[in-house]
């Protein structure tokens, strides 16, 4: 297997972490769940911050004393794949809120940017270095702005017909900054594995 022996930790405090684990395992990586501080005792080649509710995950990270050790690892260059709630955890600023979480990604992200569940949508779209991929947006955020050294990987226009006229402008939904890949959408909900493979290449 090309990805054999890669040790990938998946934050498993809340949300859709099993979906990430299945895809990473199908690609040959060795996957383990991070639920407590002691789970960080082992070697990590990469970290996945899954979708779920960012407020819940942010609180549990602190309650379980995972926050600071993980923040340091990310700041020190550990490859990270963050989807939806995970991207909110990484962003330096959350629009309209004074508090952020890891704040390791120079970007402003807006929570529930497409509205409530009725604004959730599915589309297919180009992602730089990877190609066309399925993109599932669930009460998704998008990036309002990113730092000058952040690479924009994908922009998407909402297909949601209920959305107002501004949805015609394409929003930033995938970015890369050094070791961090952050996505508004959920590659773990579709069978396409190309984004996870791209992440594993970064973790090698």
């Amino acid at each position: 297997m090309p990805n054999a022996k890669l040790q990938i930790g998946v934050l498993a405090v809340q949300g859709a972490f099993i979906e990430h684990e299945r895809i990473l395992e199908s690609l040959g990586a060795e996957v383990f769940e991070i639920r407590q501080l002691r789970d960080l005792d082992r070697h990590l080649d990469g970290l996945v911050l899954p979708g779920g509710e960012s407020t819940v995950q942010g609180k549990l990270l602190c309650d379980l004393k995972l926050f600071e050790p993980l923040r340091q690892k990310i700041a020190n260059g550990l490859p990270v794949l963050a989807t939806c709630a995970g991207a909110i955890l990484l962003a330096e600023h959350i629009a309209g809120e004074s508090k952020a979480h890891f704040a390791t990604l120079p970007a402003v992200i807006r929570r529930n940017a497409y509205g409530r569940q009725l604004g959730s949508f599915f589309t297919e779209n180009e992602v730089a270095h990877i190609g066309k991929v399925p993109q599932t947006f669930i009460r998704a955020p998008f990036f309002e702005s990113v730092g000058s050294d952040v690479e924009v990987l994908s922009r998407t226009a909402s297909s949601n017909t209920d959305a107002n006229a501004t949805s015609a402008t394409k929003q930033i939904v995938a970015v890369k900054y050094k070791n961090q890949i952050a996505l508004s959408f959920h590659p773990e909900l579709n069978s396409d594995t190309s984004i996870h493979q791209y992440f594993l290449n970064l973790a090698k």
């Binding site: 979708g51 599915f122 669930i138």
Partner: peptide, 18 residues
């Protein structure tokens, strides 16, 4: 067409939660 999938997906995001 995709609405039912999207709705099942939201429930997936709630997993492990209260």
């Amino acid at each position: 067409q995709n609405r039912y999938e999207l709705n099942k997906n939201l429930a997936q995001m709630l997993k492990g939660g209260v």
